[in-house]
């Protein structure tokens, strides 16, 4: 019996085809991975934005205005000239959110001791910077927040703009 082996040309053609297929597969896997990572960064930034807006929102919506009083003002919006930022202060609970546009972080300052915590706590995670933030509106009537949350991930840059308004709740 005469068994014939592969010729050199057959081997070269097979290897070339295999290389082409592998390159295509690798490219698809790489693209999938890149898009997956990018989507993960987007999801993380959006989650962070939602958490921070909801955190501030819960504080604004907490137990104020039940007595139907207009003054004294219990929420105060101020600009911070030193840091180029702004702050939102809850006078009653002596709690303050401060945005520092130089280090691009939001800090929560407790003026009273709460759960053994005093001083400033950074609200945003280290993987997110707040590249712009403004508080506006009518202080204790409603507070509008416009912000841009940006990922610190240099490979997958992503910014997320958000605007909303939060009004304290009232008991009828």
């Amino acid at each position: 019996m005469h068994r014939r082996a592969f010729t050199l040309v057959e081997m070269l053609v097979s290897m070339a085809l295999f290389a082409v297929l592998m390159t295509m597969s690798y490219s698809v896997i790489l693209t999938t991975q890149r898009i997956g990572s990018r989507a993960a960064v987007m999801r993380d930034v959006q989650t962070e934005a939602r958490n921070i807006i909801d955190l501030i929102g819960r504080d604004i919506k907490s137990d104020r205005f039940c007595g139907l009083t207009v003054s004294p003002s219990e929420l105060k919006i101020e600009t911070k000239s030193g840091t180029g930022g702004c702050s939102l202060t809850d006078v009653k609970d002596t709690k303050q959110y401060t945005y520092n546009s130089i280090n691009q972080n939001i800090e929560l300052n407790y003026q009273i001791k709460l759960d053994n915590i005093t001083g400033a706590i950074q609200v945003n995670s280290s993987f997110v910077k707040i590249t712009s933030l403004t508080f506006s509106g009518k202080n204790d009537n409603h507070v509008s927040i416009s912000a841009t949350f940006t990922s610190v991930h240099t490979k997958y840059p992503y910014s997320f703009d958000i605007q909303t308004t939060i009004s304290p709740e009232i008991n009828y």
Partner: peptide
């Protein structure tokens, strides 16, 4: 992922309108 971005932004714009009106009604009352 991009649609999720827009939906979240749209949701907060809807909340904004709700809270603005609620706020005005509160003040009015």
């Amino acid at each position: 992922a991009l649609m999720a971005t827009q939906r979240l932004q749209a949701y907060y714009l809807a909340v904004e309108a709700h809270d603005q009106l609620q706020s005005m009604y509160n003040l009015e009352s």
